[in-house]
Design a protein around this nucleic acid. Structure first.
Length: 169
DNA sequence: GCCAACGTTGGC
DNA sequence: GCCAACGTTGGC
């Protein structure tokens, strides 16, 4: 019998997470224990709200390399732990320290993500701009600085098509 | 509550 | 390196 891809749960949501590869690249994620990391350092309220309230277990993540050459979606990840306080905000030694964040009432949140796959050929920003199926993506909008962005299921599929790979279930 | 100044993001 | 866009801060 031929193998058939099982349908994704209807509740599954898709996201795009930005990271500067000089800070933490998808290769760094691949080298992390259990290929898993906590997504710390988000210091924007809209992105915080997503991490704290909306991003769910099993949600999928497009891993976007910003401030790099080329700008690209380098692969995908899966949410393996939902929002919990970002402890780096409490550490004065940490680059992301925020003295206003109270451990008893944390301001900043993070999730854990686990690598699903590194695309054999990453999908460049230029490809996204040139493809009708992805040209409407939020990340392409001028001045869009949000580091945690929603992505539609259609965009998720289209990015995989551009990458020439199948979705990882 | 307004808004100018400032720091940061991030594509180009 | 430049600079537009954006979010935050703080004086008034």
């Amino acid at each position: 019998m031929a193998k058939r891809a099982s349908a994704a749960p209807a509740s599954r949501q898709y996201w795009l997470f930005k990271s500067e590869p000089t800070a933490f690249s998808i290769q760094d994620l691949a080298k992390s224990p259990k290929k898993t990391t906590f997504w710390d350092g988000v210091r924007n309220y809209q992105a915080r709200n997503s991490l704290r309230d909306t991003v769910k277990l099993g949600d999928r993540v497009l891993y976007y390399h910003s401030n790099s050459d080329p700008l690209e979606i380098a692969g995908t990840a899966e949410v393996v732990k939902t929002g919990y306080p970002d402890h780096t905000a409490f550490d004065p030694q940490d680059h992301h320290y925020d003295p206003k964040s109270d451990p008893d009432k944390p301001t900043w949140y993070m999730v854990d993500i686990k690598l699903l796959q590194i695309f054999p050929q990453s999908v460049t920003r230029q490809q996204l701009q040139e493809s009708p199926s992805t040209e409407g993506m939020l990340v392409l909008k001028r001045g869009m600085r949000l580091s945690i962005q929603p992505v539609t299921a259609a965009e998720w599929q289209a990015v995989h098509k551009l990458a020439g790979v199948a979705d990882v279930e």
